Computed example of a mutant assay.
Amino acid sequence: MILEVAILDVIPGQADQFQADFQQAQHIIAAMPGYLGHELQRCIEQPSRYLLLVHWQTLEDHVQGFRQSPQYQQWKTLLHHYYDPFPIVEHYAAVFSQTKR
Rank of each mutant, 00 (worst) to 15 (best):
Y82H: 11
K76S: 07
D16V: 08
Q17T: 10
A15V: 15
Q19S: 06
Q24T: 14
P33M: 06
Y82G: 10
I11D: 04
I2S: 00
T58H: 10
H27N: 09
P47W: 01
A30V: 03
I7D: 08
C43T: 03
Q14T: 08
V5E: 09
P85T: 13
G13P: 10
Q98D: 03
V5Y: 08
L3R: 12
L53R: 13
R67L: 12
W56H: 09
A15I: 11
R101K: 07
A15R: 11
D9V: 04
Y50M: 08
R42N: 09
V63M: 06
R49S: 02
E45M: 09
L3V: 09
I44N: 03
Q71L: 07
H80D: 14
Q57S: 04
E4C: 05
P70G: 00
P87N: 10
A15W: 02
T99K: 15
Q74C: 01
A25R: 15
R101W: 08
C43Y: 05
G65L: 05
H81V: 07
G37A: 05
G65D: 08
V54H: 04
Y50Q: 01
Q24C: 01
A6L: 06
Q17C: 02
V54N: 05
Y50C: 05
Q57P: 01
V10C: 07
Q57F: 02
D21T: 04
Q68C: 09
I11H: 06
Y92Q: 14
V54R: 06
I29M: 14
H80F: 15
C43K: 04
E60Q: 15
Y72M: 06
Q41V: 13
G34E: 08
L79M: 11
A31L: 03
S97Y: 11
L79G: 14
Q74G: 00
P12E: 05
G65K: 03
L59W: 03
